[in-house]
Amino acid sequence: MALKLADFGARGLADAIKRPRLSVCRFRPSPPRVADMDNSAKAAEDESERLPMAFWALKSCREVFLSIYGEGLLTAQPGSAAARDFAATEVGPAGEWPAEFNQLPRYLSAKLVRQQADLCAGAALLIEAGEVSEPLHSVLRTGFEFAIRAFWVLDPSVSHRERCARAALAEVVSTEMTRRAASKLPDTPEPRVTRIKFRANAKAQKERLRKLFASVEGAPDGDPLKWTIEGTRYSTWTDAADRWTDAEKTGVSGGAMYDQLSILAHPQGYAATVGLIQDPEDGTRFTRVIDPVRVTKVARLGAQSFYSSVTLLTNYHGFKSKHVAAWEEELGQHFLGSSVHKRSAAEFARTIDQRPSASIMGDPNIAADRRT
């Protein structure tokens, strides 16, 4: 069944979003002048009409994921890259790998995409409520992190063995970071048990990996981000984002996009707070205008990165779904325009040693600052 905008109440939401709740606010104890608020809201009215589409696109991400998961997303279809990987015989110092270790990349990627779907749904609720400044930026930035990490783990341009090494590195970093955090807790019984548990987990993990891979090197300073497994190192966020945009042939830097999202999501001074306008007659008075164009661009990046993630999973497993096909049509028609390109289930298998050519980014320039 095709997913429609009306299924998620987007059309009925238009009037509620037409004048964003946070279109103007003051960084001063005195209340904002009503005239300023009305003028800013009116100026933004036309672009604000696109926000219901952003709400629908983000909310539908979780609906799509749950639908295709229930249909058997993680069932490797005959002839798919997943089927080939799961049947592969990989050998380490201790002998042949356990069969389940071959599936670690797909399970980890699926978990990350599932969490990204939840974050997209959360971002949709923020748009519905008119909370379209820092809360929205923070949620979408986190969702983008889940997307690019899932891509880095399941990257079709590298070998199956390297994908397994990347998934293992993700587990190393998670274990070590959790252990570090636990080590700083107060020295009371419960935290002490937690520290002992994670210390044991980290030791067992290292021993297990050295049985699977020819070389596993920790960093002299203990930094888990500097670990290498058979020459593979955990990728930074900016590097992973660059790999993603390169793979999608967007022509823009994913790292730069990630940096922009980070600026939007983190505490900033006046100079880097988007939308602040200083009163020319009173330098202590600032008006904040929330630009619906910027909001729509950030929302589009959230929806597009999820589209990339979920189609990477479906293509890897050779999975075909009417839900995805219908969703592609809806996105292309109502929100992303020509930026959505259908990608066949066979593409992953064809590009196992090269980067995919389809672009799903459209206009990713979230840094452009146009004030309505």
Rank of each mutant, 00 (worst) to 15 (best):
R163A: 07
A129Q: 06
V252W: 14
K320T: 11
E328S: 00
D369M: 07
V252C: 15
F348L: 08
T296W: 04
R62N: 10
H334L: 01
S159G: 14
C164H: 05
S321F: 11
L58P: 01
R288F: 05
K42D: 14
A81D: 02
A88R: 15
L108A: 09
S305L: 10
A35W: 03
A150D: 01
E176S: 15
S157E: 14
C25I: 07
P364I: 08
V193N: 07
D38W: 09
H323A: 12
L212E: 02
R355S: 13
Q103V: 08
T273Y: 11
A326T: 04
A299F: 12
T250A: 15
A349C: 04
E330W: 03
S253T: 00
R163W: 08
F213P: 02
T296C: 05
R114C: 09
Q333P: 00
L119C: 10
G72F: 01
K322H: 15
L126I: 01
T314A: 10
F151A: 13
L104Y: 15
P220F: 06
A2M: 12
T175D: 07
A35V: 10
K184A: 03
D363F: 09
A94Y: 06
W152D: 11
D187P: 06
A35P: 04
V216K: 13
R166S: 00
A165N: 03
D246K: 10
D221P: 03
Q103M: 13
A123D: 12
T284M: 14
E49S: 02
L212W: 01
L154F: 02
I17V: 12
I290C: 13
G318E: 00
L301I: 04
P292M: 08
R62E: 09
I263V: 11
W56G: 06
A367K: 08
V298S: 04
S133Y: 06
P52Y: 02
A110S: 08
A345K: 09
R199Y: 02
C164A: 09
N365W: 03
R208F: 15
D369C: 06
C61R: 03
A87F: 14
K42C: 13
N102Y: 05
G231D: 12
V298H: 05
T194W: 08
Y258K: 05
M177C: 00
L112G: 07
W152V: 01
G255E: 00
V274N: 12
A99F: 12
K4C: 03
R84S: 15
W327I: 10
